[in-house]
Design a protein around this nucleic acid. Structure first.
Ligand code: MN
Ligand code: MN
Ligand code: MN
Ligand code: MN
Lengths: 220, 220
DNA sequence: GATTATTTTTAGACCAGTCTAATTTATGAT
DNA sequence: ATCATAAATTAGACTGGTCTAAAAATAATC
Protein backbone atom coordinates (compact mmCIF):
# COMPACT_ATOMS: atom_id res chain seq x y z
CA UNK A 1 0.00 0.00 0.00
CA UNK A 2 1.39 3.37 -1.05
CA UNK A 3 0.39 6.76 0.27
CA UNK A 4 -0.13 9.86 -1.89
CA UNK A 5 2.77 11.61 -0.17
CA UNK A 6 5.07 8.79 -1.26
CA UNK A 7 3.69 8.94 -4.76
CA UNK A 8 4.28 12.68 -4.98
CA UNK A 9 7.89 12.21 -3.94
CA UNK A 10 8.44 9.44 -6.48
CA UNK A 11 6.98 11.60 -9.22
CA UNK A 12 9.14 14.55 -8.20
CA UNK A 13 12.32 12.47 -8.23
CA UNK A 14 11.28 11.02 -11.57
CA UNK A 15 10.77 14.36 -13.25
CA UNK A 16 13.89 15.94 -11.75
CA UNK A 17 15.96 13.00 -12.99
CA UNK A 18 14.29 13.26 -16.40
CA UNK A 19 15.33 16.89 -16.71
CA UNK A 20 18.85 16.80 -15.30
CA UNK A 21 19.83 13.28 -16.26
CA UNK A 22 21.32 12.81 -12.80
CA UNK A 23 20.00 11.95 -9.37
CA UNK A 24 17.85 14.50 -7.60
CA UNK A 25 19.21 16.62 -4.77
CA UNK A 26 17.42 17.00 -1.47
CA UNK A 27 16.88 20.72 -1.97
CA UNK A 28 15.63 20.26 -5.52
CA UNK A 29 13.00 17.80 -4.32
CA UNK A 30 12.06 20.10 -1.45
CA UNK A 31 11.67 23.05 -3.82
CA UNK A 32 9.65 20.98 -6.27
CA UNK A 33 7.23 19.81 -3.59
CA UNK A 34 7.20 23.05 -1.62
CA UNK A 35 8.36 21.27 1.47
CA UNK A 36 11.47 21.37 3.68
CA UNK A 37 14.77 19.57 3.13
CA UNK A 38 14.48 17.73 6.42
CA UNK A 39 11.11 16.32 5.39
CA UNK A 40 12.68 15.10 2.17
CA UNK A 41 15.50 13.33 4.02
CA UNK A 42 12.94 11.54 6.17
CA UNK A 43 10.81 10.43 3.26
CA UNK A 44 13.78 9.37 1.18
CA UNK A 45 14.81 7.14 4.03
CA UNK A 46 11.40 5.47 4.02
CA UNK A 47 11.33 5.10 0.23
CA UNK A 48 14.79 3.59 0.39
CA UNK A 49 13.65 1.01 2.92
CA UNK A 50 10.79 0.12 0.61
CA UNK A 51 13.23 -0.42 -2.24
CA UNK A 52 11.88 2.40 -4.38
CA UNK A 53 14.92 4.72 -4.38
CA UNK A 54 18.68 4.53 -4.04
CA UNK A 55 20.22 7.04 -1.69
CA UNK A 56 23.83 7.90 -1.07
CA UNK A 57 23.65 10.34 1.86
CA UNK A 58 24.96 13.82 0.99
CA UNK A 59 24.94 12.91 -2.71
CA UNK A 60 21.66 12.29 -4.40
CA UNK A 61 18.55 10.21 -4.79
CA UNK A 62 17.59 8.13 -7.79
CA UNK A 63 14.73 5.76 -8.50
CA UNK A 64 15.26 2.03 -8.54
CA UNK A 65 13.73 0.03 -11.37
CA UNK A 66 10.57 -0.63 -9.43
CA UNK A 67 10.56 3.02 -8.33
CA UNK A 68 10.73 4.11 -11.96
CA UNK A 69 7.93 1.73 -12.86
CA UNK A 70 5.70 3.06 -10.08
CA UNK A 71 6.46 6.69 -10.95
CA UNK A 72 5.71 6.10 -14.62
CA UNK A 73 2.29 4.69 -13.82
CA UNK A 74 1.48 7.73 -11.69
CA UNK A 75 2.52 9.97 -14.57
CA UNK A 76 0.25 7.89 -16.79
CA UNK A 77 -2.68 8.50 -14.47
CA UNK A 78 -1.90 12.20 -14.21
CA UNK A 79 -1.83 12.67 -17.98
CA UNK A 80 -4.90 10.54 -18.62
CA UNK A 81 -6.91 12.67 -16.21
CA UNK A 82 -5.61 15.91 -17.71
CA UNK A 83 -6.67 14.67 -21.12
CA UNK A 84 -10.10 13.69 -19.85
CA UNK A 85 -10.63 17.04 -18.17
CA UNK A 86 -9.71 19.01 -21.28
CA UNK A 87 -11.32 16.81 -23.92
CA UNK A 88 -14.50 15.85 -22.13
CA UNK A 89 -15.16 18.34 -19.35
CA UNK A 90 -14.09 21.39 -21.36
CA UNK A 91 -11.37 22.56 -19.04
CA UNK A 92 -8.60 24.72 -20.48
CA UNK A 93 -5.04 23.36 -20.57
CA UNK A 94 -3.95 25.82 -17.92
CA UNK A 95 -6.57 24.67 -15.41
CA UNK A 96 -6.08 20.93 -15.12
CA UNK A 97 -2.76 20.37 -13.40
CA UNK A 98 -3.80 20.71 -9.77
CA UNK A 99 -6.88 18.55 -10.25
CA UNK A 100 -4.83 15.82 -11.91
CA UNK A 101 -2.45 16.12 -8.99
CA UNK A 102 -5.28 14.79 -6.84
CA UNK A 103 -6.81 12.33 -9.30
CA UNK A 104 -3.49 10.62 -10.08
CA UNK A 105 -3.61 9.03 -6.62
CA UNK A 106 -6.80 7.08 -7.22
CA UNK A 107 -5.81 3.49 -6.62
CA UNK A 108 -7.17 1.39 -9.48
CA UNK A 109 -5.38 0.20 -12.59
CA UNK A 110 -8.67 -1.01 -13.97
CA UNK A 111 -10.24 2.45 -13.77
CA UNK A 112 -7.40 4.06 -15.65
CA UNK A 113 -7.37 1.39 -18.31
CA UNK A 114 -11.05 2.02 -18.83
CA UNK A 115 -10.52 5.78 -18.91
CA UNK A 116 -7.78 5.22 -21.48
CA UNK A 117 -10.11 3.09 -23.60
CA UNK A 118 -12.99 5.58 -23.21
CA UNK A 119 -10.76 8.27 -24.72
CA UNK A 120 -9.55 5.91 -27.46
CA UNK A 121 -5.99 5.55 -26.14
CA UNK A 122 -4.68 9.09 -26.45
CA UNK A 123 -0.93 9.32 -27.03
CA UNK A 124 -0.40 12.84 -25.66
CA UNK A 125 -1.80 14.94 -22.86
CA UNK A 126 -3.02 18.53 -23.34
CA UNK A 127 0.52 19.85 -22.87
CA UNK A 128 2.02 17.59 -25.51
CA UNK A 129 3.54 15.19 -23.00
CA UNK A 130 3.41 11.52 -23.98
CA UNK A 131 1.04 9.28 -22.03
CA UNK A 132 2.72 6.04 -20.89
CA UNK A 133 0.76 2.89 -21.63
CA UNK A 134 -0.09 0.26 -19.05
CA UNK A 135 3.41 -1.19 -19.28
CA UNK A 136 5.06 2.21 -18.95
CA UNK A 137 6.02 2.55 -22.61
CA UNK A 138 5.51 5.89 -24.26
CA UNK A 139 6.28 7.32 -27.69
CA UNK A 140 9.74 8.82 -27.67
CA UNK A 141 10.03 12.48 -28.44
CA UNK A 142 12.99 12.17 -30.81
CA UNK A 143 13.33 15.24 -32.98
CA UNK A 144 11.71 17.52 -30.47
CA UNK A 145 13.78 20.52 -29.38
CA UNK A 146 13.27 23.89 -27.73
CA UNK A 147 12.35 26.68 -30.11
CA UNK A 148 15.47 28.48 -28.90
CA UNK A 149 17.65 25.99 -30.75
CA UNK A 150 15.85 26.06 -34.08
CA UNK A 151 17.82 27.34 -37.09
CA UNK A 152 16.58 30.30 -39.08
CA UNK A 153 13.95 29.68 -41.78
CA UNK A 154 13.12 26.17 -40.59
CA UNK A 155 9.44 25.30 -40.56
CA UNK A 156 8.44 23.70 -37.27
CA UNK A 157 5.28 23.09 -35.29
CA UNK A 158 4.65 23.28 -31.58
CA UNK A 159 4.54 19.85 -29.95
CA UNK A 160 4.84 20.68 -26.29
CA UNK A 161 5.67 23.02 -23.44
CA UNK A 162 8.48 22.52 -21.00
CA UNK A 163 6.90 24.81 -18.44
CA UNK A 164 3.24 24.05 -18.01
CA UNK A 165 2.47 26.64 -15.37
CA UNK A 166 -0.86 28.42 -15.82
CA UNK A 167 0.99 31.72 -16.29
CA UNK A 168 3.01 30.46 -19.24
CA UNK A 169 0.05 28.68 -20.82
CA UNK A 170 -2.07 31.80 -20.56
CA UNK A 171 0.68 33.79 -22.24
CA UNK A 172 0.71 31.32 -25.12
CA UNK A 173 -3.08 31.53 -25.40
CA UNK A 174 -2.76 35.30 -25.55
CA UNK A 175 -0.28 35.04 -28.41
CA UNK A 176 -2.43 32.56 -30.30
CA UNK A 177 0.14 29.81 -29.88
CA UNK A 178 -1.03 26.27 -29.20
CA UNK A 179 -0.08 22.67 -29.89
CA UNK A 180 0.17 22.15 -33.62
CA UNK A 181 0.76 25.80 -34.51
CA UNK A 182 3.28 26.06 -37.35
CA UNK A 183 6.12 28.52 -36.94
CA UNK A 184 9.19 29.75 -38.81
CA UNK A 185 12.06 31.53 -37.12
CA UNK A 186 12.71 34.70 -39.12
CA UNK A 187 15.40 36.37 -37.06
CA UNK A 188 17.47 35.78 -33.96
CA UNK A 189 18.86 38.57 -31.82
CA UNK A 190 22.18 37.98 -30.11
CA UNK A 191 21.56 40.80 -27.69
CA UNK A 192 19.01 38.98 -25.51
CA UNK A 193 18.56 35.69 -27.37
CA UNK A 194 15.09 36.70 -28.46
CA UNK A 195 13.66 35.28 -31.66
CA UNK A 196 11.19 36.62 -34.20
CA UNK A 197 8.77 34.04 -35.55
CA UNK A 198 5.93 33.94 -38.02
CA UNK A 199 2.86 31.76 -37.99
CA UNK A 200 0.01 31.53 -40.43
CA UNK A 201 -1.88 34.16 -38.48
CA UNK A 202 0.81 36.43 -37.10
CA UNK A 203 4.11 37.49 -38.57
CA UNK A 204 6.93 39.28 -36.80
CA UNK A 205 6.07 37.93 -33.39
CA UNK A 206 8.93 38.58 -30.99
CA UNK A 207 9.52 35.95 -28.33
CA UNK A 208 11.99 36.37 -25.48
CA UNK A 209 14.43 33.68 -24.41
CA UNK A 210 12.31 32.47 -21.51
CA UNK A 211 9.49 31.72 -23.91
CA UNK A 212 11.58 30.11 -26.64
CA UNK A 213 13.36 27.88 -24.11
CA UNK A 214 10.05 26.55 -22.87
CA UNK A 215 8.38 25.94 -26.22
CA UNK A 216 9.08 22.48 -27.62
CA UNK A 217 8.88 22.19 -31.38
CA UNK A 218 9.57 19.67 -34.09
CA UNK A 219 10.67 20.13 -37.70
CA UNK A 220 8.05 19.40 -40.34
CA UNK B 1 -9.39 22.06 4.82
CA UNK B 2 -11.01 18.68 5.47
CA UNK B 3 -9.37 15.29 5.41
CA UNK B 4 -10.85 12.18 3.81
CA UNK B 5 -11.01 10.43 7.19
CA UNK B 6 -13.21 13.26 8.47
CA UNK B 7 -15.35 13.07 5.37
CA UNK B 8 -15.86 9.34 5.77
CA UNK B 9 -17.00 9.84 9.35
CA UNK B 10 -19.43 12.58 8.37
CA UNK B 11 -20.89 10.41 5.64
CA UNK B 12 -21.22 7.46 8.03
CA UNK B 13 -23.02 9.56 10.63
CA UNK B 14 -25.22 10.97 7.89
CA UNK B 15 -26.32 7.63 6.56
CA UNK B 16 -26.80 6.07 10.00
CA UNK B 17 -28.99 9.01 11.00
CA UNK B 18 -30.92 8.72 7.73
CA UNK B 19 -31.73 5.09 8.43
CA UNK B 20 -32.52 5.21 12.13
CA UNK B 21 -33.89 8.72 12.39
CA UNK B 22 -31.85 9.23 15.56
CA UNK B 23 -28.28 10.12 16.37
CA UNK B 24 -25.60 7.57 15.59
CA UNK B 25 -23.99 5.48 18.33
CA UNK B 26 -20.25 5.12 18.69
CA UNK B 27 -20.34 1.39 17.99
CA UNK B 28 -22.59 1.79 14.97
CA UNK B 29 -20.15 4.27 13.45
CA UNK B 30 -17.23 1.99 14.27
CA UNK B 31 -18.95 -0.99 12.64
CA UNK B 32 -19.88 1.07 9.58
CA UNK B 33 -16.30 2.25 9.07
CA UNK B 34 -14.64 -0.99 10.20
CA UNK B 35 -12.73 0.86 12.87
CA UNK B 36 -12.64 0.78 16.66
CA UNK B 37 -14.95 2.56 19.07
CA UNK B 38 -12.06 4.44 20.65
CA UNK B 39 -11.05 5.85 17.26
CA UNK B 40 -14.60 7.04 16.77
CA UNK B 41 -14.65 8.83 20.11
CA UNK B 42 -11.42 10.62 19.17
CA UNK B 43 -12.66 11.69 15.76
CA UNK B 44 -16.05 12.75 17.06
CA UNK B 45 -14.26 15.01 19.50
CA UNK B 46 -12.39 16.68 16.64
CA UNK B 47 -15.49 17.00 14.47
CA UNK B 48 -17.31 18.52 17.41
CA UNK B 49 -14.58 21.12 17.87
CA UNK B 50 -14.91 21.99 14.18
CA UNK B 51 -18.64 22.51 14.61
CA UNK B 52 -19.64 19.66 12.33
CA UNK B 53 -21.31 17.36 14.87
CA UNK B 54 -23.14 17.58 18.18
CA UNK B 55 -22.03 15.09 20.78
CA UNK B 56 -23.56 14.25 24.13
CA UNK B 57 -21.02 11.85 25.65
CA UNK B 58 -22.40 8.34 26.23
CA UNK B 59 -25.49 9.19 24.16
CA UNK B 60 -25.08 9.82 20.49
CA UNK B 61 -23.67 11.89 17.68
CA UNK B 62 -25.63 13.94 15.20
CA UNK B 63 -24.63 16.28 12.42
CA UNK B 64 -24.97 20.03 12.81
CA UNK B 65 -26.49 22.00 9.95
CA UNK B 66 -23.10 22.66 8.39
CA UNK B 67 -22.17 19.02 9.02
CA UNK B 68 -25.27 17.90 7.15
CA UNK B 69 -24.46 20.26 4.33
CA UNK B 70 -20.92 18.92 4.03
CA UNK B 71 -22.05 15.29 4.20
CA UNK B 72 -24.67 15.86 1.54
CA UNK B 73 -22.11 17.25 -0.86
CA UNK B 74 -19.88 14.23 -0.34
CA UNK B 75 -22.83 11.97 -1.05
CA UNK B 76 -23.40 14.03 -4.20
CA UNK B 77 -19.85 13.43 -5.33
CA UNK B 78 -20.05 9.73 -4.51
CA UNK B 79 -23.21 9.24 -6.53
CA UNK B 80 -22.05 11.35 -9.46
CA UNK B 81 -18.92 9.22 -9.77
CA UNK B 82 -20.87 5.98 -9.51
CA UNK B 83 -23.12 7.19 -12.28
CA UNK B 84 -20.16 8.16 -14.44
CA UNK B 85 -18.45 4.82 -13.91
CA UNK B 86 -21.54 2.84 -14.87
CA UNK B 87 -22.86 5.01 -17.68
CA UNK B 88 -19.59 5.98 -19.35
CA UNK B 89 -16.91 3.50 -18.34
CA UNK B 90 -19.18 0.44 -18.52
CA UNK B 91 -18.74 -0.69 -14.97
CA UNK B 92 -21.46 -2.86 -13.45
CA UNK B 93 -23.52 -1.50 -10.55
CA UNK B 94 -21.91 -3.93 -8.15
CA UNK B 95 -18.36 -2.75 -8.93
CA UNK B 96 -18.44 0.98 -8.39
CA UNK B 97 -18.86 1.56 -4.70
CA UNK B 98 -15.25 1.25 -3.53
CA UNK B 99 -13.97 3.39 -6.38
CA UNK B 100 -16.51 6.10 -5.61
CA UNK B 101 -15.40 5.84 -2.00
CA UNK B 102 -12.04 7.19 -3.18
CA UNK B 103 -13.25 9.61 -5.84
CA UNK B 104 -15.76 11.32 -3.52
CA UNK B 105 -12.83 12.95 -1.72
CA UNK B 106 -11.55 14.88 -4.72
CA UNK B 107 -11.61 18.49 -3.61
CA UNK B 108 -13.24 20.56 -6.36
CA UNK B 109 -16.83 21.72 -6.59
CA UNK B 110 -16.15 22.91 -10.12
CA UNK B 111 -15.09 19.44 -11.27
CA UNK B 112 -18.22 17.82 -9.93
CA UNK B 113 -20.46 20.48 -11.41
CA UNK B 114 -18.84 19.83 -14.77
CA UNK B 115 -19.19 16.09 -14.34
CA UNK B 116 -22.84 16.65 -13.49
CA UNK B 117 -23.33 18.72 -16.62
CA UNK B 118 -21.39 16.24 -18.77
CA UNK B 119 -23.88 13.56 -17.74
CA UNK B 120 -26.83 15.89 -18.26
CA UNK B 121 -27.71 16.29 -14.58
CA UNK B 122 -28.67 12.74 -13.64
CA UNK B 123 -31.27 12.51 -10.84
CA UNK B 124 -30.39 9.01 -9.61
CA UNK B 125 -27.28 6.91 -9.22
CA UNK B 126 -26.98 3.31 -10.46
CA UNK B 127 -28.54 2.01 -7.24
CA UNK B 128 -31.57 4.26 -7.49
CA UNK B 129 -30.35 6.70 -4.85
CA UNK B 130 -31.12 10.35 -5.54
CA UNK B 131 -28.19 12.60 -6.44
CA UNK B 132 -28.20 15.86 -4.43
CA UNK B 133 -27.75 19.00 -6.51
CA UNK B 134 -25.15 21.65 -5.80
CA UNK B 135 -27.29 23.08 -3.03
CA UNK B 136 -27.91 19.71 -1.44
CA UNK B 137 -31.48 19.37 -2.69
CA UNK B 138 -32.58 15.99 -4.01
CA UNK B 139 -35.85 14.55 -5.24
CA UNK B 140 -37.76 13.04 -2.37
CA UNK B 141 -38.51 9.37 -2.53
CA UNK B 142 -42.12 9.65 -1.38
CA UNK B 143 -44.11 6.54 -2.25
CA UNK B 144 -41.08 4.29 -2.19
CA UNK B 145 -41.28 1.32 0.17
CA UNK B 146 -39.60 -2.02 0.70
CA UNK B 147 -41.05 -4.84 -1.35
CA UNK B 148 -41.75 -6.62 1.94
CA UNK B 149 -44.53 -4.13 2.69
CA UNK B 150 -46.32 -4.24 -0.63
CA UNK B 151 -49.89 -5.55 -0.66
CA UNK B 152 -50.86 -8.54 -2.76
CA UNK B 153 -51.66 -7.96 -6.43
CA UNK B 154 -50.23 -4.46 -6.51
CA UNK B 155 -48.15 -3.61 -9.58
CA UNK B 156 -44.87 -1.96 -8.60
CA UNK B 157 -41.48 -1.35 -10.15
CA UNK B 158 -38.05 -1.50 -8.61
CA UNK B 159 -36.65 1.94 -7.85
CA UNK B 160 -33.74 1.16 -5.55
CA UNK B 161 -31.84 -1.12 -3.25
CA UNK B 162 -31.39 -0.59 0.45
CA UNK B 163 -28.35 -2.85 0.58
CA UNK B 164 -25.96 -2.10 -2.25
CA UNK B 165 -23.32 -4.66 -1.39
CA UNK B 166 -21.82 -6.48 -4.39
CA UNK B 167 -23.22 -9.77 -3.08
CA UNK B 168 -26.80 -8.53 -3.04
CA UNK B 169 -26.49 -6.79 -6.40
CA UNK B 170 -25.08 -9.90 -8.00
CA UNK B 171 -27.98 -11.90 -6.62
CA UNK B 172 -30.41 -9.47 -8.22
CA UNK B 173 -28.53 -9.70 -11.51
CA UNK B 174 -28.79 -13.47 -11.29
CA UNK B 175 -32.57 -13.23 -10.82
CA UNK B 176 -32.96 -10.79 -13.69
CA UNK B 177 -34.06 -8.01 -11.35
CA UNK B 178 -32.87 -4.48 -11.98
CA UNK B 179 -34.02 -0.88 -11.60
CA UNK B 180 -37.28 -0.42 -13.49
CA UNK B 181 -38.30 -4.07 -13.44
CA UNK B 182 -42.07 -4.36 -12.91
CA UNK B 183 -43.29 -6.80 -10.30
CA UNK B 184 -46.52 -8.02 -8.77
CA UNK B 185 -46.71 -9.77 -5.42
CA UNK B 186 -48.70 -12.96 -5.94
CA UNK B 187 -48.47 -14.60 -2.55
CA UNK B 188 -47.06 -13.97 0.89
CA UNK B 189 -46.02 -16.73 3.27
CA UNK B 190 -46.44 -16.07 6.96
CA UNK B 191 -44.06 -18.87 7.84
CA UNK B 192 -40.83 -17.06 6.88
CA UNK B 193 -42.14 -13.78 5.45
CA UNK B 194 -41.11 -14.79 1.96
CA UNK B 195 -43.03 -13.44 -1.02
CA UNK B 196 -43.74 -14.82 -4.45
CA UNK B 197 -43.54 -12.26 -7.26
CA UNK B 198 -44.01 -12.23 -11.00
CA UNK B 199 -42.30 -10.06 -13.56
CA UNK B 200 -42.78 -9.87 -17.29
CA UNK B 201 -40.08 -12.49 -17.76
CA UNK B 202 -40.41 -14.74 -14.72
CA UNK B 203 -43.43 -15.82 -12.76
CA UNK B 204 -43.52 -17.58 -9.43
CA UNK B 205 -40.21 -16.17 -8.25
CA UNK B 206 -39.79 -16.77 -4.54
CA UNK B 207 -37.93 -14.09 -2.60
CA UNK B 208 -36.93 -14.46 1.03
CA UNK B 209 -37.41 -11.76 3.62
CA UNK B 210 -33.82 -10.53 3.45
CA UNK B 211 -34.27 -9.81 -0.23
CA UNK B 212 -37.71 -8.24 -0.03
CA UNK B 213 -36.62 -5.97 2.82
CA UNK B 214 -33.76 -4.62 0.73
CA UNK B 215 -35.62 -4.07 -2.52
CA UNK B 216 -37.20 -0.63 -2.74
CA UNK B 217 -40.23 -0.38 -4.99
CA UNK B 218 -42.91 2.11 -5.94
CA UNK B 219 -46.49 1.61 -7.04
CA UNK B 220 -47.25 2.31 -10.67
C1' DG C 1 -31.82 -1.93 44.56
C1' DA C 2 -27.70 -4.56 43.76
C1' DT C 3 -25.25 -6.95 40.27
C1' DT C 4 -23.90 -7.94 35.52
C1' DA C 5 -23.21 -6.93 30.98
C1' DT C 6 -22.61 -3.62 27.44
C1' DT C 7 -21.24 0.71 25.64
C1' DT C 8 -18.36 4.55 25.76
C1' DT C 9 -14.54 7.09 27.04
C1' DT C 10 -9.75 7.66 28.64
C1' DA C 11 -4.86 6.57 28.91
C1' DG C 12 -0.98 5.53 26.57
C1' DA C 13 1.41 3.90 22.61
C1' DC C 14 2.56 3.93 17.70
C1' DC C 15 3.16 5.40 12.61
C1' DA C 16 3.27 8.80 8.79
C1' DG C 17 4.28 13.19 7.74
C1' DT C 18 5.61 17.65 8.66
C1' DC C 19 8.27 21.56 10.85
C1' DT C 20 12.28 24.39 13.33
C1' DA C 21 16.73 24.44 15.18
C1' DA C 22 21.09 22.40 15.70
C1' DT C 23 24.74 19.61 13.75
C1' DT C 24 27.45 17.45 10.30
C1' DT C 25 29.37 16.98 5.71
C1' DA C 26 30.79 18.64 1.34
C1' DT C 27 32.29 22.32 -1.54
C1' DG C 28 34.40 26.80 -3.03
C1' DA C 29 37.44 30.58 -2.09
C1' DT C 30 41.49 32.42 -0.33
C1' DA D 1 45.51 23.72 3.93
C1' DT D 2 42.26 26.66 6.23
C1' DC D 3 38.15 28.95 6.51
C1' DA D 4 33.56 30.27 5.08
C1' DT D 5 29.33 28.95 2.80
C1' DA D 6 25.93 26.03 1.28
C1' DA D 7 23.66 21.59 1.40
C1' DA D 8 22.17 17.61 3.91
C1' DT D 9 21.18 15.20 7.97
C1' DT D 10 19.78 14.62 12.76
C1' DA D 11 17.25 15.77 16.99
C1' DG D 12 13.16 16.81 18.87
C1' DA D 13 8.47 18.43 18.71
C1' DC D 14 3.79 18.49 16.82
C1' DT D 15 -0.74 16.92 14.30
C1' DG D 16 -3.92 13.45 12.56
C1' DG D 17 -5.22 8.98 12.75
C1' DT D 18 -5.20 4.59 14.52
C1' DC D 19 -4.86 0.78 18.03
C1' DT D 20 -5.04 -2.04 22.76
C1' DA D 21 -6.01 -2.17 27.46
C1' DA D 22 -8.08 -0.13 31.39
C1' DA D 23 -11.57 2.71 33.61
C1' DA D 24 -16.09 4.86 33.81
C1' DA D 25 -20.91 5.29 32.71
C1' DT D 26 -25.13 3.41 31.15
C1' DA D 27 -28.43 -0.28 30.40
C1' DA D 28 -30.22 -4.83 31.47
C1' DT D 29 -31.19 -8.53 34.74
C1' DC D 30 -32.30 -10.53 38.74
MN1 MN E 1 -0.27 14.37 -6.64
MN1 MN F 1 0.46 17.62 -18.46
MN1 MN G 1 -14.66 7.64 1.08
MN1 MN H 1 -24.86 4.29 -4.86
Amino acid sequence: MRTSAEENYLKAIFSLAEQSGKGASTTAIAAHLRTKASSVTDMVKRLNEKGLVDHRPYYGVSLTDTGTQVATLIVRKHRLWETFLVNHLNYRWDEVHDLAEQLEHIDSDELHDRLDKFMDHPKFDPHGDPIPDREGRMVDMAGAQPLSEVAKDTLVHIVGVKDSSPAFLKLLDGLGLKLGTQLTVNRRFEYDNSVEVSSRFRSGLLLNEQVSLNLTVKAL
